[in-house]
Amino acid sequence: MSLPLLLGGDLDAFVADAFLVGAALFVVLAIALLYRVVKGPTMQDRVLAVNVLGTNTVVVLALLSVGLGEESLLDVALIYALLNFLMAVAISKFTVDRGGVI
C-alpha cells in the first residue's frame, strides 16, 4: 500500500484499504486471544476469552462492512453482539450450577 494522497490517487480506495488493513489486524489479535482459549487454565478464562473474541468479531464485521461497502454486514454484527452475550451467559450458568443452561 503506497501513499495515494501524495501520488494523487483515489481517496475512497485508500480509506477502504485502511479499513480492510484494520480488520486484518483485528483478526491477528483474534489469533493472539486464541492462546488464552487453548491455554486456559480454568474454564472461566476460556469463557471470557471467547467473549472477547465475540466482541472482536463484531468490530471486524463492522470494519469489513465499511471496507467492502456492504451495509448488510452490519446486521450480522448486530446479531453477533446479541448472541455473544447469550453464549457467555449460557456457559457461565452451566459452569456454576451444572445442568441449568436455559
Partner: peptide
C-alpha cells in the same frame, strides 16, 4: 466443555470468512 467453547470461537472465524466472501 473446553471443546465446545473453542468450537464457538471457530464459528466466529467462519462468520467473518463468509462476510469476507460477500455472503452476508
Amino acid at each position: 466443555l473446553a471443546a465446545i467453547i473453542v468450537f464457538a470461537a471457530y464459528s466466529l472465524g467462519m462468520a467473518i470468512y463468509y462476510a469476507v466472501l460477500l455472503a452476508p
